[in-house]
Design a protein around this nucleic acid. Sequence first.
DNA 1: CAAGTAGTTTAGAACGGTTTTAAAGTAAAA
DNA 2: TTTTACTTTAAAACCGTTCTAAACTACTTG
Lengths: 132, 132
Amino acid sequence: MNNKEKLRNAGLRPTKQRMIVADILLNGFNRHFTAENLQDEINSSGNSMSIATVYNCLKKFKNCGLIKQVETSKDTAIFDTNTDYHHHFLNEETGELIDIENEEISLRKLPEIPQGYINNGIEVIIKLKRHN
Amino acid sequence: MNNKEKLRNAGLRPTKQRMIVADILLNGFNRHFTAENLQDEINSSGNSMSIATVYNCLKKFKNCGLIKQVETSKDTAIFDTNTDYHHHFLNEETGELIDIENEEISLRKLPEIPQGYINNGIEVIIKLKRHN
DNA sequence: CAAGTAGTTTAGAACGGTTTTAAAGTAAAA
DNA sequence: TTTTACTTTAAAACCGTTCTAAACTACTTG
């Protein structure tokens, strides 16, 4: 399925800008990135895009499930093209994230989900510190 | 151990402002809060404190391990007086956090820690969605 | 294909949480 | 007591993100 189809399937109009973003993000290689990272990459590929459009686009992609946003307490939003159920190592000094495939972690025991709610995804973060 | 001693043990001067914050946070009852929450509480207790001081104080407390900061991708930093190893439910609609005691989750399998690093804490976030 | 309309992009302003600045104040050390 | 290092503060600055409103573009309908 090409990117135009991916966008249409997700209910998004394949505008010029969204296609540029899709070409960068939906190429099968997973990565973590910020809005600014993405804008830089767009600029250095000879295109250009307003930062507002970058944010709009990321929000739409996220709401459609084409990308994810990672749970970290950093001051900048981090997005992830890996939409599979998975986890992360977090280097707290640098903020760097490394994927942990779902198969590499398994939970033996889970707490009872509060009344009236359902489990909508589990994220495990393993914080790393440099070993001296 | 009283709060003055706790501050000194942590290597912090027990200033008037830090004592006010300690009286609110280090009373044995755990809670999640933002800098603004804390300032409001200080104000409504008849004291007052500049927002810069609230932030300075929270940063110091955090670096000393008197409080923790929770990993969430919300736009406001969330702090936690519960410094024990524990986890959270996250209601993604409201941003509300609920503690999960460490005993309520157990991990069967862990990934290999990248070379040169050590495991510096695992945080599990279980995202909740309202059940209809 | 033309005209209409609903959705999208944009620059720039606004926003909100957090940090910095620099001056005044305070705790501890000498 | 004097000195020194640290702390607090209001206000400004900062920075990531969202809003605004006008121009533009993709799609629909006739």
